[in-house]
Design a protein around this nucleic acid. Structure first.
Length: 389
DNA sequence: TCTGGGGTCCTAGGACCC
DNA sequence: TCTGGGGTCCTAGGACCC
C-alpha cells in the first residue's frame, strides 16, 4: 500500500495570531521579535505584509525597523501561541492517530489507510485546511506526498495558504527539478558549496556519484543528498531520535565585564534550567557552558560527573567552576548559556548525599516547593535571592 | 544589517583499554 | 624501546532547523 503523508505548516504563525487577536493589525506589516529600540533582537516572524519590505525571520531587528519604520513591532506572547498551537494539534489529531509534531506550528500527519474513513488524500488535505480556518481563523499550508521529506518541501513551496501534491511515482522527478536552494537540510554553508561546484538543481546533484558527493559533503550528508535527489525519505524525520538535552541562554543588551553581574546572570540562567529539570522526568550528569564574547566568538565547555545534578546550588557550583576555567577575564561577554546533556530517565536519587534530613535533601525540597508555587501562580515568578547561596 | 533562543546531528581528535 | 588495530567514551566546534 502506498503511504501518504501530510506536512501542515501554519503561515507566519506568530504574526497571524496577533492579527487575529488584534483586528487593527490586519492587512498591516506585523513583526514579532522585539520593539524598536530593542538591541540585539532578531525577527521571529514577519507577516506577509512585512515580507514585502524585505523583512524575514532571523533578520536583526534594527534592520527590520530601518526597512519598515511604520511596521507594528511586538515582543510576542508565547503563552497565547502555545494555546493556539494546542488547538491546532488537536484538530490534526482528529484526522489520524499518527501525528508527529515538529515544532509549535507544524506537524506531519500520516493519513496512510485513512481513505475509507475520510476520503482520498487530497480531500483530507482540503478538509484539514478548512477546519483550521473555521475553528482557529488561521491559514495552513500543506504538502502531500508519499514520504515526509517530500511533503515538507512541498508545503514550503505552497505558502501561503496552499496545497501542493506530489503524486506517487513523481518524487524523483520533483526532486530533480528542484532548485538547490529548496533542499531542506542544506543551509547557507552548503549553498556556498553548491555554488562552488556549479550545482544549481537537484538534477545536477543527481548526476554525481555517491563517491563524489561524500568527498565534497562528507560521508553522512553526501549520502543524505544522494538519497534526497532520488526522492527517498530522510532519516531525520524518523520518530525515535537519540539523545536529549535542555539549555537556557541569554544575550545581554550590552556586553558584561563585571564579575558580579556575570555571576548573577549565570545564577539566573541556572534557576531557569533547574525549574525546567525539576518539572521534567529527566536527570543529567553532564553540564555544558556556552559563552560568546563581544566579537561574537563563541566557546563551549562541558563536564561529565559521576553523579547527576541534584539541586540548584549544585548546578550553579558546577557551572561556575567550569566558567572560571574557560572565561578569559577582561573580555566583554555578550552571551552566557548553560545546558544539561545526555538526559536520562530520572531514577530515585540515591546515596548518603540524599538521606532525608541532609542539607542536600532540604535544598531539593525547598526548590521543589518554590517550583510548586510558581506552577500555581505562573504570573508571579518566585525566585530565590542570590544572597541565599 | 550585525547577528535570539532552544534544540538535533555530525565530525574529529584525545584518552584509555584490550 | 617502539608500536598495530579496534572499540568506547568524552569533548569542542560547527551546521542546520524552527
Amino acid at each position: 500500500m502506498c503511504s501518504f503523508f501530510i506536512h501542515a505548516d501554519l503561515d507566519a504563525f506568530y504574526a497571524s495570531v496577533e492579527q487575529l487577536d488584534h483586528p487593527e493589525y490586519r492587512g498591516k506589516p506585523v513583526i514579532v521579535g522585539g520593539l524598536p529600540g530593542d538591541r540585539r533582537s532578531v525577527v521571529s516572524t514577519a507577516s506577509y505584509e512585512a515580507r514585502k519590505f524585505g523583512i524575514h525571520s532571523a533578520m536583526p531587528l534594527v534592520r527590520a525597523v530601518k526597512l519598515c519604520p511604520q511596521g507594528i513591532f511586538l515582543r510576542g506572547n508565547m503563552k497565547r501561541y502555545r494555546e493556539k498551537s494546542e488547538l491546532i494539534m488537536s484538530i490534526f489529531d482528529e484526522f489520524s492517530p499518527d501525528v508527529q509534531q515538529l515544532s509549535i506550528d507544524e506537524a506531519f500527519i500520516d493519513i496512510t489507510g485513512m481513505k475509507s474513513l475520510l476520503g482520498p488524500p487530497e480531500t483530507i488535505a482540503r478538509k484539514i485546511k478548512e477546519r483550521i480556518r473555521t475553528e482557529t481563523g488561521l491559514t495552513v499550508s500543506i504538502g502531500l506526498a508519499s514520504n515526509k521529506y517530500i511533503a515538507k518541501i512541498a508545503s514550503g513551496m505552497s505558502k501561503p495558504d496552499g496545497l501542493y501534491i506530489i503524486p506517487a511515482g513523481g518524487e524523483e522527478s520533483f526532486m530533480r527539478s528542484l532548485p538547490v536552494g529548496k533542499i531542506w537540510g542544506a543551509g547557507s554553508k552548503t549553498q556556498e558549496l553548491f555554488q562552488k561546484h556549479g550545482l544549481k538543481t537537484g538534477d545536477d546533484i543527481h548526476r554525481l556519484s555517491l563517491e563524489i558527493l561524500t568527498s565534497i559533503f562528507g560521508k553522512s550528508f553526501g549520502l543524505f543528498l544522494y538519497r534526497a535527489v532520488r526522492g527517498e525519505g530522510a532519516a531525520a524525520f524518523d520518530e525515535e531520535r537519540g539523545t536529549h538535552s535542555m539549555s537556557a541562554e541569554r544575550t545581554f543588551p550590552y556586553d558584561l565585564f563585571d564579575n558580579f553581574a556575570i555571576e548573577t546572570a549565570l545564577f539566573d540562567i541556572c534557576q531557569t534550567l533547574m525549574w525546567r529539570l525539576l518539572n521534567s522526568s529527566w536527570q543529567s550528569s553532564t553540564i555544558s557552558l556556552k559563552i560568546r564574547y563581544g566579537d561574537f566568538t563563541t566557546e563551549g565547555a562541558r563536564e561529565t560527573s559521576a553523579t547527576p545534578v541534584s539541586t540548584l546550588n549544585d548546578l550553579y557550583d558546577r557551572l561556575l567552576n567550569l566558567f572560571h576555567k574557560k572565561y578569559q577575564p577582561g573580555r566583554g561577554l555578550r552571551l552566557i548559556g548553560a545546558g544539561l546533556m545526555n538526559l536520562e530517565a530520572a531514577g530515585a536519587l540515591q546515596g548518603d548525599l540524599f538521606d532525608s534530613g541532609s542539607t542536600a535533601e532540604k535544598e531539593r525540597r525547598l526548590e521543589q516547593a518554590i517550583l510548586e508555587i510558581n506552577k500555581k501562580f505562573p504570573d508571579a515568578v518566585l525566585r530565590r535571592g542570590r544572597s541565599w547561596i
